[in-house]
Design a binder for these strands. Structure first.
Length: 962
RNA sequence: GCUCUGGUGGUGGAAUGGUAGACACGAGGGACUUAAAAUCCCUUGCCCGCAAGGGCGUGUGGGUUCAAGUCCCACCCGGAGUACCA
């Protein structure tokens, strides 16, 4: 009987479905294992062969773990909210829900054909109310908590209120937008509006005026990881900085824990590094620089607030952050960012106009312009001076946009000799440069002769007062000690990680469970009761922003909260007494995807996000498979989300994803035809093209090319303009050129898995995707090799033709057990490509020795089941089993069968391999040397000499040094 | 620029300090067949040689080692991330 994959694959898929083979229970006496694939966004284009790569790898591992006796959770669902469906809605009027539903159906159809072991009973979709109820719920918890730095965790806002009523802000160390200082009396005297405003300063989900990445084309703000090089990741539209009132998540409160947590997880170093860079922890010092009062007479009165510590003799001053406190003796100017609040008050009359012009110019510059012109130095002198607190020198204060408002304090001490940016600035404006660090204590040179600054954190301090002669590290510590002693600064840590902007001016996302109440002339954000969740997304007439520039939810006519009836009502009922307007923004894409792995544990729970029992059993994700492109987005947000849920007692593990494997990107392999430039209908086969300048390479659909040979007929039919194509052939064939490029429609190199499943079957596709190379490595997709894998399956199938129940010979069992050992080892280290090779070697050997013994073949069926589940299930049943092969037992390698009587030793002379010799396994070094000496080849290479040294590694190698 | 990766036949890749190129694809030759498909067998890193045999070979140059694709140092090239983060 032939291997009829197109018949047996759908048959077993149905059987699995009918028998609930992939249904997973939370209660089990078995050990648990959670395998997760990154949440897919169901795009309209469907799956191409790159998408299932990770799913196949995780499926193999999940099935393997199951065979080893684990209860394996392996779910799948959809990150269904997102921009593409909404953009499509704006263009066509088609409701995003409809598009999304259609795309999901297509995805599911494609996934089903590949034979994954997903438990579809646990499917979640972020756009479904029963799912986003818990996204909204988590948002409310964030809204109702603050981060206490002393406790190192999130605490309820009510704790904070109680504290304020009792002792004000005294002794509070909490993550906040702005450090506030008030007493209990003040707090108790404030009205509700003021108190709420203060509380907002501490909430983990908070509303604030922040500079955001505004994308006019998309009509929404974007998070930092959604912008690359000043352009939106989705669509590539320009992004500008804009001050807007937005919801943000105080992820920065968790920055240190996000760095620390990386130590506990089993991720690749490169991914951990991406996260560390993104979080950007740097140690240094915060130092207050007093203003030179004499030269800044106009700032005196109001400026005291900048330096409360200087009481009782207030000196106006401003705070800077530096990672190089040791270089403080080399400061020759100060720089403020254009947004700095001090600028207005310190600019002198002579400089005022210039400064204002510069600030205006800088603020209006788009983010893209600014980034594109990084090398271009710009700035202006304020006319004001600061005083170096250690040298009491007068230092000019400049404004420049190379200092960023969002990092540190938006002000720096410039040390041009030891910072490349300060160096460029100093050179451009002719400011002095002073060397304060040298490689050796006396290696001082004139900075005027330098071509670049000396940024290295090594060497010795020079020209630096009391730290001169110290090593850089010592000098850093000494300067900080001094500054702390003087009370003008302190050791501190800064993070690059910014709070995540959480509002999107879009329709297709989770609504915020927030309404706005006007109290004492102020709009206060108030949460709707948790029991009223989910707050469902309303219908709108249009998906575009409103005429007044409000987000699409502004079109909703029924989008107001009725406080008394606890429900959504018509906007016309808004009276600001008991009916209030609801928030018009929606949540971003990462809202729904940050905690989805929890929901899979308990997907139908309406009482809780997930039950204590469920999370107690599954704990966290043991293995997470997905792309490294989520390193700065999803993987940070999810870790933050998880840590917060841990703090409030829901999650039981601090880190959500214990082990993570990045699947490499599958690149496309494009094919080209070469059209003659002199004859527009003539196409020249690749080998006949003499000069590439005479021809135009044209992308040709890889589906009409086989092994780089063009199907001429299908090419003529492909597009009307090629109908009359003529060809110059080599050996009667048209050979195409090829190149590795991104897989994309426009390059006609997209390979869709359905075609391959139809042609070769799902098992072949699964094996081939693995055979291509290491999972984590990027590689081009090339269908050319798929035949070999398909041939292997046919060969494997044929082994069962003359199945025999006779006991297997020792040699046959050896083949089996070698295979068991190698496959087990390789699966454990996720080396699936070598597994496929091992199966091939095994099938080749068994075919050669004509082995068709049940004793050998039956365990092989189990071994291959994770890789090629359909053929395995079929053969398993042919072998007489009634239950699924999924619940078989993983074979165990019996080392007894692997014991060799003789070993083929490679013999090296001076480290060069010359010949091999068969020796008994128990052979000693002396016996081996004697044997070699007795061989003609041995004598030839010994050349009459005695070995000076012999390295004898039992069962490995013999090396004779002459 | 910085950080992380990777560099092995015509191609994808294998080799956890111990015979470099497993396993496949492709290519060439052959068997079976009226023919095709399917299947099977042989050859296939490069150079010298009829052969036996030998030399050279894992981006480049050094080093450690009895032994290096693998470890160390420097450099070159490709890919990814990030980008005025003080």
């Amino acid at each position: 009987m032939d291997y009829n994959f197109s018949e047996l694959e759908p048959r077993w898929q149905n059987w699995w479905r009918g028998h609930g083979v992939y249904h997973v229970d939370n209660a089990s006496s078995k050990p648990h294992y959670y395998v997760l694939d990154m949440f897919p966004y169901p795009s309209g284009a469907g799956l191409h062969v790159g998408h299932p790569l990770g799913y196949i790898a995780s499926d193999i591992y999940a099935r393997y773990k199951r065979l080893r006796g684990y209860n394996v959770l392996h779910p799948m669902g959809y990150d269904a909210y997102g921009l593409p469906a909404e953009q499509y809605a704006i263009q066509t009027g088609q409701h995003p829900a409809v598009t999304t539903e259609k795309n999901i159906a297509r995805y599911r159809e494609q996934l089903d054909k590949i034979g994954f072991s997903f438990d579809w009973d646990r499917e979640v979709r972020t756009c479904e109310p029963k799912y986003y109820k818990w996204t909204q719920w988590t948002f409310l918890q964030l809204f109702k908590h603050y981060y206490d730095n002393n406790e190192g965790k999130a605490l309820p806002i009510s704790t904070l209120e109680a504290r304020f009523a009792k002792q004000g802000s005294e002794g509070l160390d909490a993550a906040c937008t702005e450090v506030l200082d008030f007493s209990a009396e003040e707090w108790n005297a404030w009205n509700e509006a003021k108190r709420q405003q203060v509380l907002m300063n501490y909430r983990l989900a908070y509303l604030a005026d922040t500079y955001v990445n505004w994308c006019a084309e998309l009509g929404t703000v974007l998070a930092n990881d959604e912008v690359v090089g000043g352009l939106s990741v989705r669509g590539g539209y320009p992004v500008e900085r804009k001050l807007m009132r937005q919801w943000s998540l105080r992820i920065s409160a968790y920055a240190q824990r996000l760095v620390d947590g990386l130590e506990q997880v089993d991720w690749t170093d490169s991914l951990k590094e991406i996260q560390r860079n993104w979080i950007g922890r740097s140690e240094g010092a915060a130092v207050w620089f007093p203003l030179d009062v004499k030269s800044n007479a106009n700032v005196l009165p109001g400026a005291q607030a900048y330096m409360p510590q200087f009481d009782p003799q207030p000196v106006p001053s401003f705070e800077i952050f530096t990672t190089r406190p040791d270089t403080i003796f080399g400061v020759t100017f100060m720089v403020l960012c254009p947004e700095h609040e001090l600028i207005d008050s310190i600019a002198t009359d002579e400089q005022r106009q210039q400064v204002q012009d510069y600030v205006t110019w800088a603020k209006n510059r788009s983010e893209r312009e600014r980034q594109a012109e990084v090398k271009k130095v710009s700035g202006v002198f304020t006319g004001a001076y600061a005083v170096n607190p250690l040298t009491e020198e007068r230092i000019p204060i400049w404004v420049s946009d190379y200092v960023l408002a969002g990092y540190g304090t938006g002000a720096i001490m410039a040390v041009p000799a030891h910072d490349s940016r300060d160096f460029a600035f100093a050179r451009h404006f002719n400011l002095p440069i002073r060397q304060v660090v040298a490689v050796e204590k006396d290696a001082v040179s004139d900075p005027a002769t330098w071509s670049e600054s000396m940024d290295a954190k090594t060497g010795y301090s020079v020209n630096s007062g009391f730290v001169s002669g110290m090593k850089v590290k010592e000098a850093m510590a000494a300067v900080i000690d001094k500054i702390e002693e003087m009370g003008i600064g302190h050791r501190t840590v800064n993070f690059r990680l910014r709070d995540a902007i959480f509002s999107r001016q879009r329709y297709w996302g989770e609504p915020f469970p927030i309404y706005y109440k006007t109290v004492d002339g102020q709009q206060l954000a108030v949460s709707i009761p948790e029991e009223c969740l989910p707050l469902e997304l309303p219908e709108v007439s249009e998906f575009k922003p409103t005429a007044t520039g409000e987000p699409p939810l502004g079109h909703a006519t029924r989008w107001a909260w009725d406080l008394n009836n606890r429900c959504v009502v018509e906007n016309s009922k808004i009276d600001n007494v008991s009916v209030f307007p609801l928030e018009l923004s929606t949540m971003p894409g990462f809202a729904g995807s940050s905690g989805y792995y929890f929901r899979y544990m308990d997907p139908h729970n309406d009482e809780a996000y997930f039950s204590k029992e469920a999370v107690g059993y599954w704990q966290n994700v043991d293995l997470y498979v997905g792309g490294a492109e989520h390193g700065t987005g999803h993987l940070i947000y999810a870790r933050f989300w998880n840590k917060f849920l841990y703090d409030i007692g829901l999650a039981v593990k601090e880190e959500p994803f214990q082990k993570l494997i990045n699947q490499g990107m599958i690149q496309g392999r494009s094919n080209f035809v070469y059209r003659s430039k002199s004859d527009n209908s003539l196409f020249i086969s690749k080998g006949l093209v003499k000069d590439m300048n005479d021809v135009t390479p044209i992308h040709v659909d890889i589906n009409i090319v086989d092994n780089d040979v063009l199907d001429l007929e299908r090419f003529r039919q492909w597009r009307p303009e090629f109908a009359d194509a003529r060809f110059e052939l080599e050996d009667g064939k048209y050979v195409c050129g090829w190149e590795v490029e991104k897989m994309s429609k426009s390059m006609y190199n997209v390979q869709n898995p359905d075609d391959l499943v139809a042609r070769y079957g799902a098992d072949t596709l699964r094996l081939y995707e693995m055979f291509l190379g290491p999972v984590e490595q990027a590689k081009p997709w090339d269908t050319n090799g798929i035949e070999g894998v398909h041939r292997f399956l046919k060969k494997f199938w044929r082994l069962f033709d003359n199945l025999s129940d006779e006991p297997a010979a020792k040699e046959e069992l050896k083949v089996l057990h070698q295979t068991v050992k190698k496959i087990t080892d390789d699966v454990e280290r996720f080396s699936f490509n070598t597994c496929v090779s091992t199966f091939m070697i095994c099938a080749n050997t068994l075919t050669d020795i004509k082995c068709s013994k049940r004793e050998v073949l039956e365990p092989l069926v189990v071994l291959i089941a994770p890789f090629a589940p359909h053929i395995a299930e079929e053969l398993w049943h042919q072998l007489g089993h009634e239950a699924s092969v999924c619940d078989a037992q993983w074979p165990v390698c019996d080392e007894r069968y692997l014991v060799e009587d003789t070993v083929k030793y490679p013999v090296q002379f001076n480290g060069k391999m010359r010949f091999t010799v068969d020796l008994p396994a128990a052979c000693t070094q002396d016996e081996a040397i004697a044997a070699i000496k007795s061989m003609p080849e041995g004598q030839k290479w010994m050349d009459g000499k005695e070995p000076r040294k012999v390295i004898f590694v039992p069962k490995k190698i013999i090396n004779i040094v002459l």
